[in-house]
Lab assay of single mutants.
Amino acid sequence: GPREVTMKKGDILTLLNSTNKDWWKVEVNDRQGFVPAAYVKKLDSGTGKELVLALYDYQ
């Protein structure tokens, strides 16, 4: 199956793709996968990378 990404509340993840309104593709610890968009919030990183903050645990 697809590689699952797990996250804990407060984690910072790299946002790869947010074109789908329900599932965003993120990368964390060299793993890529989809997380519910409602579970993360975009951060203003000030760099080229888009980052998101995990609002809830997800696994």
Rank of each mutant, 00 (worst) to 15 (best):
G1M: 12
G1A: 12
G1F: 14
G1H: 13
G1L: 12
G1I: 13
G1D: 11
G1W: 14
G1S: 12
G1P: 13
P2Y: 14
P2F: 14
P2E: 11
P2A: 14
P2I: 14
R3E: 12
R3P: 12
R3D: 12
R3K: 11
R3T: 13
E4G: 15
E4T: 15
E4W: 15
E4M: 15
E4A: 15
E4V: 14
V5C: 06
V5P: 04
V5K: 02
V5D: 02
V5T: 05
V5G: 03
V5A: 05
V5M: 14
T6R: 11
T6K: 11
T6P: 05
T6A: 13
T6L: 09
M7K: 00
M7V: 06
M7E: 00
M7A: 01
M7I: 10
K8P: 01
K8I: 07
K8V: 07
K9Q: 07
K9L: 04
K9S: 06
K9A: 11
K9W: 04
G10T: 01
G10H: 03
G10Q: 01
G10K: 02
G10A: 03
G10V: 01
G10F: 03
G10S: 02
D11Q: 10
D11A: 05
D11R: 01
D11T: 05
D11Y: 03
I12P: 01
I12H: 04
I12V: 10
I12K: 05
I12A: 02
I12C: 05
I12M: 05
I12T: 06
I12Q: 04
L13F: 05
L13V: 06
L13W: 02
L13Y: 06
L13C: 07
T14M: 08
T14D: 04
L15G: 00
L15C: 04
L15E: 00
L16M: 05
L16A: 02
L16T: 04
L16K: 04
L16R: 02
L16I: 13
N17S: 13
N17G: 06
S18Q: 09
S18T: 09
S18A: 12
T19D: 14
T19M: 09
T19K: 09
T19H: 10
T19C: 11
T19L: 08
N20E: 06
N20C: 11
N20Y: 07
N20M: 07
K21T: 09
K21I: 07
K21W: 05
K21G: 07
K21F: 06
K21N: 10
K21A: 12
D22V: 12
D22W: 15
D22F: 14
D22E: 09
D22L: 13
D22C: 15
W23F: 06
W23Q: 02
W23H: 02
W23S: 02
W23L: 04
W24L: 04
W24I: 04
W24R: 00
W24H: 02
W24E: 01
K25V: 15
K25W: 15
K25G: 05
K25H: 10
K25F: 15
V26A: 01
V26W: 01
V26L: 04
V26I: 09
V26P: 00
V26N: 00
V26M: 01
V26E: 00
E27Q: 12
E27Y: 06
V28E: 05
V28G: 06
N29P: 03
N29F: 07
N29D: 12
N29E: 10
N29H: 10
N29W: 06
N29A: 09
N29G: 14
N29I: 05
D30W: 05
D30M: 08
D30R: 07
D30L: 07
D30Y: 06
R31T: 14
R31V: 15
R31Y: 10
R31P: 01
Q32W: 15
Q32E: 10
Q32I: 15
Q32P: 09
Q32V: 15
G33L: 15
G33A: 11
G33M: 15
G33S: 07
G33H: 08
G33N: 04
F34V: 05
F34H: 05
F34M: 07
F34Q: 03
V35H: 00
V35C: 04
V35M: 02
V35E: 01
V35R: 00
P36E: 03
P36C: 07
P36L: 06
P36S: 03
P36A: 04
A37Y: 02
A37E: 03
A37D: 03
A38L: 09
A38F: 09
A38Q: 11
A38V: 08
Y39F: 13
Y39N: 06
Y39R: 06
Y39W: 07
Y39I: 10
Y39H: 08
Y39K: 07
V40P: 03
V40C: 12
V40D: 02
K41A: 09
K41F: 06
K41H: 08
K41L: 10
K41V: 14
K42H: 07
K42C: 08
K42I: 13
K42M: 13
L43S: 03
L43W: 06
L43Y: 07
L43D: 02
L43I: 15
D44K: 12
D44T: 12
S45Q: 10
G46F: 11
G46D: 14
G46K: 11
G46L: 12
G46S: 12
T47V: 11
T47P: 12
T47H: 13
G48E: 11
G48D: 13
G48L: 08
G48K: 08
K49E: 11
K49G: 08
E50I: 13
E50N: 12
E50W: 09
E50L: 12
E50P: 11
L51H: 06
L51D: 03
L51P: 01
L51N: 05
L51V: 09
V52S: 01
V52G: 10
V52Y: 07
V52M: 03
V52I: 06
V52E: 00
L53M: 14
L53N: 02
L53V: 14
A54L: 06
A54I: 05
A54M: 07
A54T: 03
L55S: 01
L55C: 05
L55V: 06
L55R: 03
Y56M: 12
Y56F: 13
Y56H: 11
Y56G: 05
Y56I: 10
D57W: 04
D57Y: 05
D57S: 06
D57A: 06
D57G: 05
Y58L: 04
Y58D: 00
Y58P: 02
Y58F: 10
Q59W: 10
Q59F: 11
Q59T: 15
